[in-house]
Amino acid sequence: MAHETRLIDGLRAGSRAEFSTLVERHAREVYAFLARLSGVEVAEKLTHETFATAWNGASTFQTDRPLRVWLLGLAAKAAAAREGFDGRWEAAARVELDSAGAAHPEIPADHAEAGRLAALAVADLPFPQRAALVLRAFGGFGIPEISATLNASGDAVAALLGASYLSFVNRLEVRAVR
């Protein structure tokens, strides 16, 4: 963690060199997160927006959270703004769970095809559910980290995750039938 502390100190002091290090270290993950969240077509643009916000707000970075959580939070905000989500996570979490998929078709054995179906099913999810699921499934975040990243309550995140995984399964089944 010593190197992260140095990095944070440098960022808060406005060091370009440390900011370059930040970009080198985290651009790949931020890009992958945004590509999964909003699509590869806009991922680079949103990644740039994320780091621009990071550079402009580095001096106010709160050291009580990991850089990764901070950056992915900025990325989620950039993606939310693009999709017109107003940041009301609690309201978004108050949804009835979808009924289970009826068809239960076979999931393709082919790895690439299965991955493609998963991507399409995730893309079908409402933005708040998608953000929570991507952070959980691909970022390895638990509810507290997702809560800190999205600036949402733990209850809202838990509800969003429950809804998102069920919705994902239902949409995957619908996709697999087609």
Partner: peptide, 9 residues
């Protein structure tokens, strides 16, 4: 079904 997420490269 959730295992398909791991197939998403």
């Amino acid at each position: 079904e959730l295992g398909t997420l791991k197939s998403w490269r």
